[in-house]
Amino acid sequence: MTEAMIEIDGLHKQFGDNVVLKGISMRVAKGTVVALIGSSGSGKSTLLRCINLLTIPDAGSVRVGSHVMTYSGDSTQLPKDREQAAFRANTGMVFQHFNLFPHMTVLHNVMEGMVTVLRKPRAQAEQEAIALLEKVGLRDKAGEFPHCLSGGQKQRVAIARALAMQPQVMLFDEATSALDPELVGEVQAVMRALADDGMTMIIVTHEISFARELADEVVFMGDGVVVESGPAKDVIDNPRQSATRLFLSRFNGKSPGRDESPRVNRC
């Protein structure tokens, strides 16, 4: 195995009495794509959020590149805000609901992290932001505000915004689940291009066929533990565990229906 970019060891997390992660350990090699699958409530989103500390684990350690965070369960020993911020800046996160900043233009959304966190000069940040928008095919939308964009365009801007931090890994939390079916493709194409560029990625997804095609490895989670993991095609085509089989049989190669109705643009 090549050098591990992400190393997770003994991760525990509970919310009140609800134990969501029960000791997760995994390694993600540099340049590989891992798909986290599993039913709702299996802990996959929480695991993803723990990797960039949006959710603070109760115990365990997370390493991304050279940054390590260790949690002992002692709440007085938490890392400082600034240390956690530096850790997060190194991991790009893409959310289901895009979470673009509505009061900034597309260009400024992409520039924000570079200017505020990386303290790059505005002119340089603007140049890099435009290059990133070019990459996701939205160069011509630089001056628009987010509410003028379609869901797919918003998500591509969100990806550019995350890439602007030059993160070592990219995390996708159901990045296409809130999109109308005809818009899923354009976002998946950007994700595919990123993977081809050698980006280390973890994607939480319900699109089993996309996971099978894009991911090198699939991790099937159930009830806070890793039930089964391995090469994507092996796990999806020939699952060994009965829980994995049961879960996959519900898809039959298709993605679950989306409940979101199309949004009307006001531009």
Partner: peptide, 16 residues
């Protein structure tokens, strides 16, 4: 809440 969350994911501090 997605707004502060996205900002946090970019590595901003609480003040920022």
């Amino acid at each position: 809440p997605g707004q502060p969350e996205a900002a946090r994911a970019l590595g901003m501090t609480k003040f920022q």
